[in-house]
Amino acid sequence: MTGAAPALRIAGDLRLGTQTLCRDLLLEVPGGGWTVLLGRSGVGKSTLGRLIAGLATPARLIGGIAASDDRPLAGRVAVMAQGDQLLPWANALSNATIGAQLRGKAPDRARARTLLARAGLNGLEHRRPAQLSGGQRQRVALVRTLIEDKPVVVLDEPFSALDAGTRAAMQDLAARMLAGRTVILITHDPLEAARLAHRAFLLGSEGARRLDLPDRSPPRPIDAAETLAAQGAFYGALLGRAAA
């Protein structure tokens, strides 16, 4: 990893035109851990992820995003968007190493092949996106993100196209590969949040509410009682139940 993983402080009003998506937002994101953002569609989770990554978005944060080391985040963030965004004319191996190619550097194809194999794509390196399933394409996009080796990583619904078994395996792979990074995971899946989060927030129009998590370190077992209890509490929070 190039450089230590900083903590982040995200504060202000998230606005789209004249509409305030999220008011009085305050997110304290610890360095070197997974922070999960839950919330209903339209609250601005993906928009916030794009702002952290420095990507273009019509929305703006009236406030700021600051790293604990007081350095700009530009060049230090890897992002995996909701769509796989694979180049249709390039094979899986080339798509996985596109970052290095765009920077004019020699891609680490051996490492890419290793990661593709760990993602269950061994033997598919030379297939183009049209020859891959939706889940396979999403795993190529995950490998493309993992190989960037950045201290800050934004993952926006990175496992949404996967079946349950593959999703759990890819969650475990990402947790291992991104250990020590500052990861912001955007998800609609309360179980995913309960498994992977070191810190979790529920985003709404009035800001962010921190959610309680089990004491066990992530990735937590899917069938552990405390994981399932947290999943239930997160569902309650999304549904607006006071007990959550």
Rank of each mutant, 00 (worst) to 15 (best):
T2F: 07
G3H: 15
A11M: 02
G12F: 10
R15M: 15
L16W: 12
T18D: 15
Q19S: 11
L25E: 05
L25T: 06
L26P: 00
L27E: 06
E28H: 10
E28Y: 01
P30Y: 11
G32N: 08
G33H: 04
G33R: 14
G33K: 11
W34M: 04
V36S: 07
L37Y: 01
G42F: 00
V43D: 09
S46K: 04
T47Y: 03
G49H: 01
I52E: 04
A53L: 03
A59K: 04
A59C: 06
R60V: 01
I62Y: 02
G63P: 04
G63D: 05
G64D: 09
I65Q: 08
D69G: 06
D70Q: 09
R71L: 13
P72I: 00
R76Y: 14
A78C: 08
M80V: 08
A81G: 09
A81D: 04
A81L: 11
G83L: 05
G83F: 07
L86W: 12
L87T: 09
W89C: 05
W89K: 02
A90C: 12
N95R: 10
G99E: 13
L102F: 08
L102S: 07
L102H: 09
R103H: 13
A106C: 03
A106K: 15
A106P: 10
A106Q: 14
A106H: 13
D108F: 06
A110C: 09
A112L: 08
R113G: 11
R118V: 02
A119V: 07
G120D: 11
L121G: 11
N122V: 08
H126D: 13
H126P: 00
R127H: 15
P129V: 13
A130R: 15
Q131M: 10
L132N: 11
L132W: 11
Q138H: 13
Q138V: 03
Q138A: 10
R139L: 09
V140I: 12
L142R: 06
R144S: 05
T145G: 03
L146Y: 11
L146W: 00
I147L: 15
P151Q: 05
P151A: 13
L155D: 10
D156S: 08
D156L: 04
D156R: 08
D156E: 05
E157A: 06
S160T: 07
A161C: 09
L162P: 10
L162I: 04
D163M: 03
A164Y: 09
R167S: 13
A168T: 12
M170F: 09
Q171I: 07
Q171F: 02
L178H: 00
L178P: 07
V183N: 04
I184R: 06
I186W: 10
P190Q: 07
L191E: 06
A193V: 04
A194I: 04
H198C: 05
R199F: 04
L202V: 01
L202D: 06
L203M: 09
L203A: 09
E206T: 14
R209Q: 15
L213M: 12
R216F: 00
S217N: 03
P219Q: 14
P219M: 07
P221E: 10
D223F: 15
A225K: 14
L228P: 02
A229E: 15
G236S: 05
A237T: 07
L238D: 03
L239Q: 14
L239P: 05
G240L: 05
R241S: 00
A242K: 14
